[in-house]
Amino acid sequence: MAKVVVKDLHKSYGDNEVLKGLNLEVQDNEVVCMIGPSGSGKSTFLRCLNDLEVPTKGQIVISGYDLSDKGTNINLVRENIGMVFQHFNLFPHLTVLQNITLAPIQLKKASKEAAEKTARDLLDTVGLGDKADAMPKSLSGGQKQRVAIARALAMNPKIMLFDEPTSALDPEMVGDVLDVMKDLAAKGMTMIVVTHEMGFAKEVADRVVFMADGLIQETGKPEDVFDHPQSPRLQDFLNKVINV
């Protein structure tokens, strides 16, 4: 069974219908990149996947857990989904190490010692082994985002959601973050990545999904989507993005 199954997903804020009936399946180990104009509902979609937003209608099944089922323990599902935000959202009152160990320790996933050991290993993998005791505010944007990725990975998630992880970064920082994500993909992590980094999408994605106006307009292999866009909507979007 697919890792993520989304059926006829609707989401409205008052009269404003943001998601208008999305259908998507993501398989184990698959990397899906989502592209689309701003305001098309990409963030809203990702937030629905870990219940930060409650859908108005439709069904979401993650690793066999139906989110709309009242009996589903949402905190348990969330432990299996790591999320990385555009603005990092590190906890400013905690050190880098404490940011990473907070959830594992609070949720009794590991002893303090074991959690710190895992955290240091993760910091090594994202190239920040020397920053364990730093406060977030002393880090650059790229470093913050890598800490945020390490923090999400510390819960040992089965799926990772990325919402424009490099959009808030200075250009020279983007590469370090994308490298970490590429490594993760290579290790077989199931990933849904909202991004405007076309290069990354071409290189890493198994599939690219184009969203506009609250609907998935087109989906396919990266080379098909980027080189042979079918809908005028997508052609238009790609023109704009490439010309920037």
Partner: peptide
């Protein structure tokens, strides 16, 4: 406190009160 803080904490699986 920025809304993103609560979202980040909840997305890690922390219950509301924690």
């Amino acid at each position: 406190v920025d809304d993103g803080q609560m979202e980040a904490a909840r997305s890690l699986g922390l219950p509301y009160w924690t």
